[in-house]
C-alpha cells in the first residue's frame, strides 16, 4: 500500500521510459477503467437511493398501527378491553394501549376545536399498538378481533410498506454487488491488458534482465503505466457519470424513486473515491500479473 502511494506521488521517470509506449493496451486500459467507473457511479447512486428509501420505509414501519373500535357507548369499554386482551396475546405485537380521552381530544382538536365533549359523542375509541421487529400476522389478528370485538377495525398501513422496504433493501444489496462485480471485471480486464503488454514487450524485458535489472524494477515500469492509465480513465468516467446524475430532473416534480436517484450532500464525494479505487485495482492487478509473468522468463 505504501508502494502504491509512493508510486502515485513520486513515480520514476527512468523506469517509465524503459518500456516503450504501447498504443492499444494503453487505450484499452483507460477505456475499460472509464466505462467501468461510469457504470459503478450509477450502481452507487442506485444503491444509495435504495438505501435511503429502505431507511425511510423502515422508519414508517416502526410507527404504530391503530385499532379503531366503534360501538354503542355501553359496549365500548367492554370491547376495548377485549381488543386489548387479544392484542396482549398476539405474537408480534410488542405493546398496545388505549388512548385516553385527553389524547383523543388532542387528535380531533384541529378539526373540531378544543371544547369537544368527547364523552358525549359516539367517537370511536383508538387503541395504539407497537409492532415487534418480526411483525405480526395481520390477517389472523383481524379475524380474532372480529370474533372478540365486532366493532374493532385494524388500520394496518404497514402491510403495503413492508414488501417495499424489503425490495429497497434488496436493491441496495444489488447495487453494492454490482459495484463489486464491476471492480472484479475491471481487475480481470486490466490483468489481460497487462499480460498482453508484457508479452508484447518480452524482448524489452529480456534486455533489461540482461543488463542487471531486478524484477521489481521492471514491474514498477509496467505498474506505474497501468495505474496512471486506470486513474485517468476512471476519473473521466466518474466525471461523465456524475454530470449525468446531476442532470437528472430534480425531485419534487415527479416524486418517488427515480428522482431520488441523485447524490445528496457528502454523497457527492463518494464517486470521487472510485478513480482512486480503480487505480488501486490496476496497481495490484498489474503487479500480480507482472511478477507472475517474470517468473516464467529466465
Amino acid at each position: 500500500m505504501t508502494r502504491f502511494f509512493t508510486l502515485l506521488l513520486h513515480g520514476d521517470r527512468h523506469a517509465d521510459r524503459v518500456v516503450p509506449p504501447t498504443g492499444h493496451t494503453a487505450w484499452l486500459t483507460s477505456f475499460t477503467a472509464g466505462a467501468m467507473t461510469f457504470l459503478a457511479v450509477f450502481a452507487l447512486a442506485l444503491s444509495l437511493a435504495s438505501g435511503r428509501m429502505a431507511d425511510r420505509w423502515s422508519d414508517a414501519l416502526a410507527r404504530t398501527a391503530t385499532v379503531r373500535i366503534s360501538a354503542p357507548a355501553d359496549q365500548l369499554d367492554f370491547q376495548t378491553r377485549a381488543v386489548l386482551d387479544v392484542l396482549a396475546t398476539t405474537p408480534g405485537v410488542e405493546s398496545a394501549r388505549a388512548m385516553t380521552d385527553e389524547e383523543q381530544r388532542k387528535l380531533l382538536e384541529p378539526w373540531f376545536g378544543p371544547d369537544l365533549p368527547v364523552d358525549a359523542l359516539p367517537i370511536p375509541r383508538l387503541v395504539e399498538l407497537t409492532e415487534a421487529s418480526d411483525g405480526y400476522d395481520s390477517e389472523g389478528l383481524r379475524q380474532r378481533l372480529a370474533a372478540e370485538a365486532p366493532g374493532a377495525v385494524l388500520d394496518d398501513h404497514t402491510r403495503w410498506r413492508r414488501p417495499l422496504a424489503t425490495a429497497a433493501g434488496r436493491l441496495r444489496l444489488l447495487g453494492l454487488a454490482s459495484i463489486l462485480l464491476i471492480g472484479v471485471t475491471m481487475a480481470a480486464m486490466i490483468t489481460l491488458a497487462a499480460n498482453a503488454s508484457l508479452a508484447a514487450n518480452a524482448q524489452v524485458i529480456q534486455v533489461l534482465r540482461l543488463v542487471g535489472a531486478r524484477d521489481t524494477y521492471i514491474v514498477r515500469a509496467f505498474v506505474r503505466r497501468f495505474t496512471f492509465r486506470a486513474l485517468a480513465g476512471s476519473a473521466a468516467g466518474a466525471l461523465a457519470a456524475m454530470i449525468g446524475v446531476a442532470l437528472l430532473p430534480s425531485a419534487d416534480a415527479a416524486g418517488g424513486f427515480l428522482t431520488g436517484l441523485g447524490f445528496t450532500g457528502w454523497g457527492w464525494l463518494l464517486p470521487l473515491a472510485l478513480p482512486l479505487l480503480a487505480a488501486l485495482v490496476a496497481f495490484f492487478a498489474t503487479r500480480t500479473a507482472a511478477f507472475q509473468k517474470l517468473k516464467e522468463l529466465p
Binding site: 534482465r209 540482461l210 543488463v211 542487471g212 535489472a213 531486478r214 524484477d215 517474470l294 517468473k295
Partner: peptide, 10 residues
C-alpha cells in the same frame, strides 16, 4: 535467486 542473478550481472 532472481535478484542475485540481477546483482551478479552488474
Amino acid at each position: 535467486a532472481r535478484d542475485d542473478v540481477a546483482q551478479m550481472r552488474r
